[in-house]
Simulated scan of single mutants.
Amino acid sequence: MNILCFGDSNTYGYRPDGTGRFDEKTRWTCLLQKKFGNRHRIIEEGLCGRTTIFSDAFREGRRGLDQIGITIETHNPIDLLVLMLGTNDCKTRFNASSKTIAKGLIQVIEKAKKYSSQPFELLIISPIHLGNGVGDDGFDPEFDLASEQVSRQLAQEYRKVATHYHAGFLDASKIALPSEIDREHLDESGHATLADTVYKTITESGLLEKGMDSSFCHIA
């Protein structure tokens, strides 16, 4: 079965020290593939700076809404879609509330449904929180205190979205912290913990078993 992981830099595996991308022994998506072995195929679709619906004037092609349809169509058929977006939506220039970001996530989901060749299961991951002082000098000026606060409110809104779609839900902030190096990205241990928890969430929730049950009501 095909599992598409669609997210931002923390799905891409961006290193907190800014030296590039973690290797396949470290990224949570690759660790997840190792756990599933040959039973399921993990499709990595992480992009640094990706948002739900907001266009970034400084970085081309970052709107998840613009990319999800093409991505789904490229990798069809998809059995399980794992979405982890929202961190970049917290940037100051977007001035978005957690409710607005959740509405953007819904648009991404609806677009995915439109382009999928078959019904699929859905796992929504609310991202890790932005660390205290992420916008301080020497860190990331694209964020500020308000950004931190919005990031802490995403889980509540994302849980509502998951309930609406009868989807799986995971609050990554409960199990992983941003690196102290940049106060924004997962470090090696964070990737390992997230991989373990995503695997546990998928297997214990029976999402893939639902995908194999033609009588179950999938997202379509």
Rank of each mutant, 00 (worst) to 15 (best):
E110I: 10
L31H: 07
L122G: 02
F139W: 12
T163A: 13
S126E: 01
E60Q: 14
R15Y: 02
L194T: 07
T74H: 08
L4T: 01
A176N: 02
S189L: 13
L177D: 11
A102W: 01
F54R: 13
G46S: 04
V82M: 01
H185I: 08
L194K: 05
L122A: 01
P178D: 02
F143L: 08
E110H: 09
D137H: 11
A167G: 06
D17H: 07
F22V: 01
G13F: 00
R15E: 10
M84C: 09
D89P: 03
D171A: 12
R63A: 10
D171F: 08
G46L: 05
S215E: 12
S205L: 05
D187G: 13
Q118S: 13
T193Y: 04
Q156T: 13
H218M: 10
I78V: 10
L32D: 08
N95H: 12
L186E: 03
P16W: 05
F216G: 02
K35M: 14
S151I: 00
G49H: 09
R152E: 09
L83P: 04
E148I: 10
A172H: 02
D23E: 12
F58M: 11
I3E: 03
R21S: 00
I124S: 08
K111E: 15
L186A: 07
L186H: 10
G61N: 15
K113D: 08
K25C: 07
N76H: 05
Y165P: 04
R39K: 14
G18I: 00
T197L: 00
I128K: 03
K35F: 12
R152K: 14
R152M: 05
R27I: 04
A172K: 00
K114D: 06
R59Y: 14
R39W: 09
G7E: 01
G13I: 01
A195L: 06
I219Y: 10
K174V: 09
S97L: 03
I106H: 07
R41E: 14
S173Q: 04
L85I: 07
Q149Y: 07
L81W: 04
Q156K: 14
N2Q: 13
T11P: 04
C5N: 04
H164M: 13
L123A: 03
H75F: 14
E148F: 01
L208C: 11
R27T: 11
R159F: 12
H164Y: 14
G49E: 02
L145D: 12
G69M: 06
A146S: 14
L31G: 03
Q118E: 12
K160F: 07
G64Y: 05
L85C: 02
E188R: 15
L194V: 04
D137L: 14
T201S: 13
G37I: 12
L105N: 00
M1H: 08
A112H: 06
T26I: 15
L170I: 13
N2I: 10
C5W: 03
A220R: 15
D196W: 04
D56G: 08
A172V: 09
F36G: 09
I43F: 13
P127Y: 00
G46P: 06
L194F: 05
A195W: 06
A155I: 02
P77C: 12
T197V: 06
